[in-house]
Computed example of a mutant assay.
Amino acid sequence: MEYNYNNSLSEEDDGLCRHVISFFRNNTYFIACLGLILLASFILVSRVQDTRKNTTKMNQELKLQDKIVQEYQHLRLERQTLTEYSHVKALAKEKLHMSDPTVENKKVIDVRNSGGNFK
Rank of each mutant, 00 (worst) to 15 (best):
Gln60Ser: 07
Ile31Lys: 11
Ala32Pro: 00
Leu75Gln: 13
Lys53Glu: 12
Ser8Arg: 12
Leu36Trp: 06
Glu11Leu: 05
Asp13Val: 01
Arg25Lys: 10
Gln60Pro: 00
Leu75Asn: 13
Gln60Asp: 06
Tyr3His: 07
Asp66His: 04
Ser10Asn: 07
Ala40Cys: 12
Ser10Trp: 01
Val69Ser: 10
Val69Tyr: 09
Phe30Ile: 01
His74Ser: 15
Glu12Phe: 02
Gln60Arg: 09
Arg79Cys: 07
Val20Lys: 05
Ser22Phe: 03
Asp66Cys: 02
Val48Leu: 14
Ile37Glu: 15
Ile68Val: 13
Leu39Ala: 15
Glu84Asp: 05
Gln73Arg: 12
Gly15Ser: 09
Ser8Gln: 10
Ile43Asn: 03
Ser8Pro: 01
Ser86Thr: 11
Leu64Lys: 13
Leu44Cys: 14
Gln73Pro: 02
Asn54Asp: 07
Tyr5Pro: 15
His74Gln: 15
Leu64Gln: 11
Phe30Asn: 14
Lys63Gly: 00
Leu34Phe: 05
Phe30Val: 03
Asn7Arg: 08
Asn4Ile: 15
Leu34Asp: 14
Gly35His: 03
Leu38Arg: 08
His87Lys: 09
Glu78Asp: 13
Ser8Asp: 11
Leu44Pro: 02
Ile68Gln: 08
Gln49Asn: 11
Thr83Ile: 06
Met58Val: 10
Gly15Thr: 08
Glu61Ile: 15
Gln49Trp: 06
Leu39Phe: 09
Phe24Ala: 06
Tyr3Leu: 14
Glu78Ala: 13
Arg18His: 06
Glu12Leu: 06
Ile37Asp: 11
Leu39Ile: 14
Ser46Pro: 01
Ile43Trp: 01
Glu12Gly: 05
Ile68Met: 08
Asn27Thr: 02
Val20Asp: 04
Leu16Ile: 05
Ser41Met: 10
Lys53Ile: 11
Cys17Leu: 09
Phe42Asp: 06
Asn59Ser: 08
Glu61Phe: 07
Gly35Cys: 09
His19Ala: 11
Gly35Glu: 14
Asp50Asn: 06
Tyr72Glu: 10
Arg52Pro: 00
Phe30Arg: 12
His87Asn: 10
Leu9Ala: 02
Glu78His: 04
Asp66Glu: 13
Leu64Val: 14
His19Phe: 05
Thr51His: 04
Arg47Thr: 11
Asn27Phe: 00
His74Ala: 15
